[in-house]
Design a protein around this nucleic acid. Structure first.
Length: 583
DNA sequence: GCCGTTTTCGGCCCGACTGTTTTCAGTCG
């Protein structure tokens, strides 16, 4: 069965090959279509099975691309793409992973030197064949040679959980640096995307050279990729690309808005501004109603915003849109209509209802976990150790007798604890949607988290059936990490999230936002579908040690990416309201 | 190839940096 990821990959391949042929505009159209398919909540492959008309609802997909998607779903290939591949039979993905090598360079190197693979590229560079090509030189050849090695070992995108602490450390370092006036994290980290391509940091200062020098002198910098007058890029913290941009303080707000992105949000916002005779760029917001040629200068017309980020949105009579919402998913329209959500915050969270102890695979006792949850500021904690069953190795999971036995142990701790402690279990959902825990044990426990841990390769329809069957069990309170994905490792189940959300709302089962940075499951778009459907959300850490309670920030910001308000999140509720919710 | 308060054709975000090509192309974000 065709997956959406495959469709996206095919469309991106079209874009790359067309770009290599110097075709104008079409590459952008294919990329835009690919991005929108990636963002689409339901399965686009399933839509395509209904024919081209069903694809109408996807932005950027017109007749031609719709026909290609249907062709791919029905036949497994796109004829035009295969023809392009025949004309340029190269390992495009591998070659463009080399820093500084894009599709056009790949096209030239193939036509002139017959380069098809990274090994060919390496040989051509070593034999000094590249430097003689028009538009190339010794420096380009040398850069390619140096960047091939990194491309060969390049990881996928970094986890937010790795990039965010690195960004925080850099900001702390720069704040203490003399020439720096203002500093902020920008880019996808500021929007709290689950994975990030690089770390972006913005600085406001007068002496740009001094800031860049301080930056490249940072002890965690491993190598400098490039360094100009206003920006620099390095590898730091184990090969992570870190970009810094320095602007004058007066333009810090406009630069922060610009470099926070997303690209889609900024394109939408620029167009929204142009409709109102306002030009937006990284230097400010400018009233161009009396300007004959808005293209004549970067800073043209009357300056009406730029010192702060809020001033940029204010120039358009919009409230400041939280970074987590800036994904081009209707946030500008919502802001214009005064309908932005009042997003959940870290301070709203009162407790965690998914955590493990040394009774299963956690590393700490019930007492230690409860004590540290209280120290973290939680008002309550649910102890939900693994049940034995499919997907749980060895005897780390608890059987029904052990779960009943654990109740007493939890209650003993609860009696001495300063916070409320709930009993519970993380039950496994078997391939048919059944639970790995008997009804007697389920009835005796406060919180039932049901999670998929096995059979994570089923097709969408049976996977969705499986989880909705589990949610229909009267004891289940929370559906844990619904997809079972592990970022950069496995994609997990493909789910019809609209169907899942409808059942969750009807059965009063909370869908989990698992805060573990390797999971972040659910994530932004599915959360938004769930919230729209009125399904409750639970932001849990799935902590196996006390230190992991702090991961809740990743979960909260992920829930914010799904437009969740405090009322949508059951563990922001007071304990009495939560107990009433539990089945 | 897509799209529309510039609407069925004619536009498509835009700027920094690098390297090389002396006026710009490619890449990147």
């Amino acid at each position: 069965m065709t997956t959406d990821d495959e469709i996206v990959a095919e469309l991106e391949a079209m874009a790359d090959l067309l770009e290599a042929k110097d075709v104008e505009y079409k590459p952008r159209a294919y990329r835009r279509a690919a991005e929108n398919i990636q963002e689409h909540p339901g399965s686009v492959a399933s839509l395509a099975a209904e024919g081209t008309d069903a694809l109408d609802e996807i932005d950027g997909v017109g007749d031609a691309i719709a026909a290609k998607i249907v062709e791919y779903v029905e036949t497994g290939t796109i004829e035009e793409l295969e023809e392009l591949r025949g004309e340029l039979p190269v390992e495009m993905d591998a070659l463009t992973r080399v820093e500084g090598v894009g599709p056009k360079t790949v096209g030239t190197l193939y036509r002139e030197l017959g380069v098809r693979t990274l090994a060919d590229l390496d040989r051509a560079a070593r034999e000094e064949q590249i430097r003689d090509l028009y538009g190339f030189g010794p420096k380009t050849e040398q850069n390619i040679l140096e960047n091939i090695e990194f491309a060969q070992t390049a990881r996928e995108r970094e986890l937010l959980g790795d990039g965010r602490p690195l960004a925080d450390a850099l900001v702390g370092y720069l704040e203490d640096s003399e020439p720096v006036e203002r500093v902020a994290v920008a880019g996808s980290i500021r929007r709290w995307r689950a994975t990030i391509g690089d770390v972006d940091v913005l600085v406001g200062a007068e002496d740009h050279a001094a800031v860049l020098e301080a930056f490249t002198d940072w002890e965690r910098v491993e190598s400098v990729i490039e360094s100009g007058e206003n920006k620099a890029s390095v590898r730091a913290g184990g090969g992570v690309r870190v970009d810094i941009r320095v602007v004058v303080d007066a333009e810090f707000g406009s630069a922060l808005q610009y470099f926070t992105g997303s690209k889609e949000h900024n394109v939408d916002l620029r167009n929204y501004a142009l409709d109102r005779d306002v030009k937006l760029n990284e230097y400010g917001a400018f009233d161009i109603s009396d300007v004959a040629d808005p293209e004549s200068d970067q800073r043209v017309g009357e300056r009406i915003g730029g010192h702060t980020e809020a001033s940029m949105y204010d120039a358009l009579d919009l409230p400041t849109i939280p970074p987590e919402l800036r994904e081009g998913r209707g946030e500008i329209e919502a802001a214009a209509a005064g309908e932005l959500p009042d997003l959940v915050t870290e301070a709203d969270v009162r407790g965690d209802i998914h955590a493990h102890t040394d009774w299963s695979d956690g590393g700490f006792t019930i007492e230690e976990m409860v004590e540290q949850a209280a120290a973290f500021g939680h008002e309550y904690l649910a102890v939900t150790d693994h049940a034995s069953g499919p997907g749980i190795f060895g005897n780390t999971g608890l059987d029904d007798d052990e779960l009943i036995e654990q109740i007493e142990a939890v209650e003993d701790v609860a009696a001495e604890a300063g916070i409320d402690v709930l009993t519970g279990v993380e039950a496994n959902i078997d391939a048919g949607g059944g639970l790995s825990v008997g009804d007697d044990a389920l009835d005796a426990l406060d919180v039932i988290v049901a999670s998929p841990h096995s059979a994570l390769d089923a097709d969408m329809e049976s996977a969705t059936d499986r989880l909705t069957t589990a949610m229909t069990h009267p004891a289940v309170d929370v559906l844990g990490h619904p997809h079972g994905r592990l970022l950069n490792q496995r994609s997990g189940l493909e789910l019809d999230i609209t169907e899942l959300a409808a059942v969750a709302a009807e059965q009063d089962v909370a869908l989990e936002v698992n805060s573990n940075p390797a999971r972040l499951d659910l994530w932004g778009r599915p959360v938004q579908v769930a919230v729209d459907a009125g399904a409750p959300i639970a932001v849990n850490t799935d902590a196996h040690s006390p230190g992991e309670f702090a991961n809740v920030r990743y979960g909260v910001h992920t829930a914010r990416r799904g437009w969740a308000e405090p009322g949508d999140v059951i563990n922001t509720w007071p304990i009495d309201d939560l107990r009433e919710f539990l089945h």
